[in-house]
Amino acid sequence: MSHIHIDIRKKTYPARDGSGEHLAIRDLHFELAAGEFVCLVGPSGCGKTTLLNLIAGLDRHFEGSIRADEGAATLRIAYMFQNPRLLPWRTVRENIQLALPKGEGREWVDHLLEVMGLTASQNQYPQRLSLGMSRRVALVRAFAIRPSLLLMDEPLVSVDAPTARRIRQLLVRVWQERPHSVLFVTHDLREAIALADRLIFLSAPPTALLHEVTVDIPRGEREDETAVEAFRRRLIGEHQQIRDLL
C-alpha cells in the first residue's frame, strides 16, 4: 500500500465575468498514510470537490503534484461521487463489473453484493432502486476495483439518517476487511468524527488547510452518539477557527 502526498500550490478557474482568474486552491499540502481514513471538512463551496477531481485525475490543470510512494501508476483510485452515477441502461451487476477489467473479481463482487444486501437486486436496473440502494451499488463499484485510494465526495448527502448510518457501518466494515486509504469529503462534523482516523479542516476559498485533528475515539465506540458528540463539543470549544468555519 502506498503513502500519498498531495501538494497543490495553485488551482485557478477562469473568472465567470471573463476578467482574469479565480483562485480556487492555494498552497494545500497534506499526506495520506497507507490504509488511513481521512475526512475533509469544510463549508459548502470551499473547493472540496475540486480537490477530489484533481486527485482523481479528472482535472489536470493545476500547479503542484499528487504522487504515491510506489508511483502513480500503481495507485488504484476509486471515486464515489455525490450522486451515484450509475449507467441507467446497465443492471446493478453490469455497472459494477464494468469498472473492472474483463472477467476479474467476480467472487469479490459477489461478496460485496452480499455484505451490502444487494444480491437479490443485482439484475435490476438502477431506476428500480431507492437512493439508498443506488448509493450502496456505487459503494460496491468503488470497493470492487480493490482501490489503494478511495475518494468519497459527500456520498451520503440527502440520504435519510437511518440509511446513512447503515451505509456508514457497511463502509467501515468493508474498509476494515480490506484496508486502503480513504479521503472522505463532508460538511457534517458528526459524520466525519464517526468515520475518520484524522480530520482535515479546509478554509473558505481560496482553499487552504486550516487545521488537522486526530480522532482518538476507539473504532468500537464510534456508533455511540454521546462519545461522538462529546468529541465534537471539545473540538469546537478548543478551536476558534473550527467554530467559525461551522
Partner: peptide
C-alpha cells in the same frame, strides 16, 4: 457529463466508454 467523468475516473478507456457510456 457526470457519466463521462465516472468512466474517466474508473479508467474505462476509449472503447469501453464509447460502447457502454456514449453509444446507449
Amino acid at each position: 457529463r457526470d457519466l463521462l467523468e465516472m468512466a474517466e475516473a474508473y479508467r474505462f478507456g476509449r472503447l469501453k466508454t464509447l460502447l457502454h457510456v456514449i453509444w446507449p
